[in-house]
Design a protein around this nucleic acid. Structure first.
Lengths: 285, 285
DNA sequence: CATCTTTATGAAATTTTCTTACAAAAGAGG
DNA sequence: CCTCTTTTGTAAGAAAATTTCATAAAGATG
């Protein structure tokens, strides 16, 4: 597991803290940025506790003392809270909504990075390595993700295709069998068509992989599921970011496959890269 | 431009510093991490100068004093370390390469967030709002981005389409005219076909928007360019992250258009959302 | 429910760290 | 070589943080 953010650690520990520690925690969580520039005396006063209590609080969270704690807090602020979810408001102008959308995306990526199951990733890489054929299926926005996956996995020198057409998906699912991997991408994991096709593929003995929401019908039916828990879209204006998380996970899978293939495979990748060179204007440097 | 990293600022100022300030700078740059956990006395000794000299040094760089300086340095270190390319090594296992790929993506997003021109974003939103038709064009991996964009902009109730077929692109570009927006997505901005089609569209009086690398042939030819500077792919194993940055920028643009349309437009978006409900299994909560 | 034990908390003293005031040294300009 | 400016350090003082210790609160035990 990745190192957790100090702010989250404090928030998590909140119920375990005693009275004065809890007071300190609340003051810090309320305005962590301010806390980093306060003296121990100021913070103690704000929390209504004594200075040694603040000091003990710091040591409880593995800091050498108050200054060290402030340092750690400042670092945590840079990496974490900076990317806090801030909703887009109707009155926002470019300078407001642009960073908000970036931050929200970054935030979701950071969350999934810390939560994704490495075991599952490994299992999926296994399946992909062993596959005789790979089909990437998705509808709507997930169709684009599937298309991108095709483009990526095409390089591995095995039959890959993507389909965003339900009838095609259905036909292929029914003709597949052992050795075929059907990779389903779905934000909700509840689209009836998708679940039905996945069931069909599974019934025919194919391997079904689901990149989707945990505990969804698609997740339940899949041979291996890569759970992606991205918060519900609470804001009317905030775009859906699960697509992006899905894309990055496919990057991870592709990297996993490349690494498994070993260094002998690199020349092949080089060859594909080179094949594109002639299509481009040369960059003068 | 966003605030520059403190470490870089110090390095840049190096020639302007006087003797003792320069000594302090060298010690800090040699091991900034250590500096954040030193006392002013320790640092002064390490640099071979007096404590007030260190203090003056800090104030020169807009810190309130030494502790404040350490805080700022610590923050700079965090954002700096994140931008360090942690390449995927051939020997990496899942637990290593997974966070590396996420981090690399996050870093690129954070970089573009800080560098993207809000003025340009606004200009593009203007063009999109005024457009009678919008075409999203891309090849290869950028084709998926274009497809995603179509899916997104379709909701705005105006004729949008995406094309990843060069011949189709060419035909459409030649038939377009005033009021038509051709939106080109390209990682390098140097693919000959793409640049030619863009030139064709421009020659026919259409608006050409380029989401691409700065100073590339495509960027030069476009009516408005959204520059995306994503570091070159140095690592064989590290996937290309510009696609993802492009997607997020399209999210930003779509949000910009939605906000411009104003609150009267929201019911329309709701209607589209609702139309998908019947295709899904209901979530029991 | 009284008493003992443990734990939690703060006052005060101590120590460490930082800042300021001022003076000495170094350098620039005439 | 003097004067003025800039740079640097010494030493004093101020501020901040930590430790010690005493007391209060909470909990356990008979």
């Amino acid at each position: 597991m990745h190192s957790q953010n100090l702010i989250n650690i404090i928030a998590d520990e909140l119920p375990e803290l005693n009275k004065s520690e809890s007071k300190v925690a609340h003051v810090i969580l309320a305005d962590p940025d301010r806390a980093t520039s306060s003296s121990i005396a100021a913070l103690a006063k704000a929390a209504g506790v004594s200075e040694p209590s603040v000091n003990r609080f710091c040591k409880r969270f593995n800091a050498a003392g108050f200054p060290d704690f402030k340092l750690k807090l400042a670092k945590a602020l840079v990496s974490g809270v900076r990317f806090v979810n801030r909703n887009v408001d109707p009155g926002d102008d470019v300078t407001s909504y642009t960073p908000k959308i970036f931050d929200s995306t970054i935030n979701n990526l950071a969350m999934v990075r810390d939560r994704i199951s490495h075991t599952r990733v490994n299992q999926v890489v296994d399946k992909l390595i062993q596959a005789k054929r790979i089909y990437f299926f998705g509808l709507g926005a997930s169709g684009s993700v599937a298309r991108d996956a095709e483009n990526k996995f095409f390089r591995f020198n095995l039959p890959v295709s993507f389909h965003d057409d339900v009838l095609m998906q259905r036909m292929l699912a029914s003709t597949g069998g052992t050795g075929d991997v059907f990779f389903f991408i779905s934000h909700t994991g509840r689209t009836k068509e998708v679940v039905e096709v996945a069931a069909l593929a599974k019934a025919n003995g194919s391997t079904v992989i689901g990149l989707t929401a945990p505990d969804s019908p698609l997740a339940v039916i899949s041979s291996v599921t890569l759970d992606v828990e991205v918060p519900e879209n609470t804001d009317e204006y905030m775009p859906m970011t699960s697509r992006i998380v899905h894309l990055v996970i496919l990057d991870v899978l592709a990297t996993g496959v490349t690494l498994r293939r070993g260094p002998d495979f690199l020349p092949h990748l080089e060859k594909i890269k080179d094949s594109l060179k002639s299509t481009r204007y040369i960059k003068e440097t």
